[in-house]
Amino acid sequence: MERKIRVLVAKPGLDGHDRGAKVVARALRDAGMEVIYTGLHQTPEMIVETAVQEDVDVIGLSLLSGAHLTLFRDVVTLLKKRGMDDVLVVGGGVIPEEDASKLKKMGVAEVFGPGTTTDEIIEFIRKNVKK
């Protein structure tokens, strides 16, 4: 049986802009993945607990408030604590170049800035999903 890729698309923090997250969610669905969308204002704890229960392969974090360094770090740390370090974590939003490299050092696999096509995201996930 073919294994389906399960993706959690989550919006941590306080900004209310979920247009991008929804576009990505739909694109991943149309690429044959199962996408769990949880809505706005998620805490890192909620995101990680949801990832555990839904047993996802990928977490896509979307954030436009500027708090990415703190919130992405918390998600990655909590995932490690729950023994979920095999989950592929990617991020998107308005994230400066130098922050992107900091995020990658923390364990975020890739950061997709403005102008990224959905095809690039799909391809990256397919290539890098673990398990």
Binding site: K4, G32, M33, E34, Y37, T38, G39, E45, T50, Q53
Partner: peptide
């Protein structure tokens, strides 16, 4: 699930956010 792509958008959790961290509740989409 889409019969054409095999993909699905699972959104039932959007309305259940407050339960996400309750250890007495398990939610699966």
């Amino acid at each position: 699930t889409s019969p054409f792509t095999g993909g699905a958008l699972l959104g039932d959790r959007i309305r259940m956010q407050e339960l996400a961290c309750d250890s007495g509740v398990f939610i699966r989409s």
